[in-house]
Amino acid sequence: MSDGVREPAIEVVGLTKSYPGGDAPVEAVRGIDLRVEAGQTYGFLGPNGAGKSTTIEMLCTIRNPTSGTARVAGFDVVRERTEVRRRIGLVFQQQTLDQQLTAEQNLRFHADLYGLPRAEADRRIGEVLEMVALADRRADTVLRFSGGMKRRLEIARGLVHAPKVLFLDEPTIGLDPQTRAAIWDYLHDLRRRTEITVFVTTHYMDEAEHCDRIGIMDHGEIVVEGTPEALKSGIGTDRIALRTDDDELAIARIRERLGVEAGVHEGQVTLAVPDGASVVPRLFTELDVHIRSVTVTRPSLDDVFLTYTGRTIRDSEGARAGAGRVMTR
């Protein structure tokens, strides 16, 4: 914007989507608000059927919202659909490559669809293939690629037209741990080099740790939103475990000075506090006991997910496997 204020990459206000149902319309998305700043990586989590895919499809202009507005890369997803499309890259959960064509032909097709001039397309195709380490396979038919290679190629394709926002719907589902790690390496590399905003859904909580911010969706609403750190500290307590020269004295001092009841578990003094990292320095200054080691265990995003949705993400993953979904419309 001309006033120099950074415009958010994604701005959603009161977005809803309902489908005609048997008795009453089924509300897949129930009035969500969402703001993703430019350059951020935003993790969008939720159990199966929470409304994530519908939301992402509305943001990508594939579906029209029932009500509410959404702006992506500065344009309205309904009224300025083409402008939005020119500025977003998409990597779907379901594979969308033409397997009969070569890697390069797939990218070329994409560049042409997005109207890139020939020279620009050549340069970009070379760059993105280099980035996902497929430059030496550019002339190979996609049919011969492994699942991980196809996924990398799709990410490369999503970047060919230099989008401002990259949407990734479960980019690592069904991939082995090394490939998953490699894909996140590409995404980190991408963020370092460009100002791209990344909007990603994932079922892997360890991957959500890579995100700047996380939103958890359930029953069509965003139930909680924030940085991974804030979310984890928001749900309660860290566990601190100490090895000391005098455990009895340590426990007494902790009770006096910190007002916290500690106990001995597995040969260590353990206590639960809201913010472990800020308590550690006080332990050293206020306990007149020699401390040999300290470990602070933070709650994981799995704990966060469980707290807000009442399910573990793996419960919902089990449900996913049984649900045959038609992705393309």
Binding site: M1, S2, R6, E7, A9, A38, G39, A73, G74, R86, R87, Y114, G115, L116, P117, E120, R124, H161, A162, P163, K164, R191, E195, I196, T197
Partner: peptide, 25 residues
């Protein structure tokens, strides 16, 4: 990510595609 790299509608690079008349596109 530094702020001066901020992607905004006016200061960020425009998409690479040429602007053409709709019919030609």
């Amino acid at each position: 990510m530094s702020t001066d790299q901020a992607a905004t509608r006016t200061s960020g690079p425009e998409p690479l595609g040429e602007v053409r008349s709709d019919l030609a596109h």
